[in-house]
Simulated assay, not measured.
Amino acid sequence: MKITFLGTGTSQGVPVIACNCNTCLSNDSKDKRLRASVLISIGNKNILIDSGPDFRYQMLRAKVQSLDAILFTHEHKDHTGGLDDVRAYNWVTKQSMEVYAEYRVLEALKVEYAYCFAPNPYPGIPKINLNTITENPFNLLDIEVIPIRGMHLKLPVLGYRIGDFAYLTDFNFISEEEKKKLTNLQVLVVNGVRKEKHISHYSLPEAIALIEEIKPHKGYITHISHYLGLHAIENREFPHNISLAYDMQELEI
């Protein structure tokens, strides 16, 4: 299984106008963070978690020639805003894109992309097949996917475990019962938006504490705001088995 971090950033804390902080002005490519998304490649199958507004560029940058399914964590625009661009994959495969999310999220997608689900759709619009999931494990392309329930302040969100890999973003709470789904992991990815406490996201210390509690072989921090600072500097302070993820980083599990 190959994991590609297509994006490790966040809209959180990003000003409307151009930012002149050290992170945003950095020449280090590891400080250039597009909205958080990850690609899971198993054999010849590609599964995406979240298609934010940077989706099109992320897929072009990573040269992703095929995409079989998209899992959504929740309905916020920074995680769903690029869904329209699946039309390129529709054109290549002549098939609808398989989208998986819980009922509430699918209903939000129907509103946001109403033209895709109209009775008489306009020619050339994205073709999307919606699949409703719950907190129960399900089969996707003969691959078991285990949803992980968390909270994003008051909004329920889902993380996912596939094999020995788990991805949690936009969490600021996970129950003890859900943590039991995260045992014996090779890689755990957790959001850590900044060092200071945040109302709806794990802070960096909270993300590190969760990784240390779960004890995966390796932990990575994603959904990183520019407030967290420079990759080269901040990464020095991490425990030996925890790192900041960066865009286009690839892992083999």
Rank of each mutant, 00 (worst) to 15 (best):
E206F: 13
Y100V: 10
K30M: 10
M59F: 10
T132I: 14
D31Q: 05
D78T: 13
L230R: 12
I214T: 11
G52L: 00
Y220Q: 09
S51C: 12
P15G: 06
T222K: 06
L6D: 00
E176V: 04
I162H: 08
K127H: 11
V111N: 13
G192K: 03
D28K: 01
I199M: 11
P239C: 06
I211L: 09
G82W: 04
L244M: 13
S96R: 12
Y115L: 07
Y57H: 14
I224H: 07
I211W: 05
S66I: 02
L140M: 13
H231A: 00
H198N: 15
I49H: 04
N131P: 01
F173I: 03
L130I: 09
V193S: 04
S66R: 13
R56F: 12
I17L: 12
T10N: 06
D85N: 12
R161Q: 14
E135Q: 09
K179M: 15
G124S: 10
T132N: 13
L6F: 03
G163I: 11
L210R: 09
E102P: 00
T23C: 06
N44T: 14
L140T: 05
N136D: 13
N184R: 12
K218F: 15
K127Q: 15
G229H: 03
V64S: 08
G124I: 07
K45C: 09
R194V: 01
S225W: 08
P119V: 02
K215E: 11
F117T: 12
I242H: 06
E250H: 09
I143V: 13
R104Q: 14
H79I: 02
S200A: 15
L182R: 05
E252M: 12
I242M: 07
Q186S: 15
L67G: 01
K197R: 14
E102H: 15
N90M: 11
H223G: 09
R149P: 01
A207L: 12
P137Y: 10
S225Y: 08
E75L: 00
M59V: 12
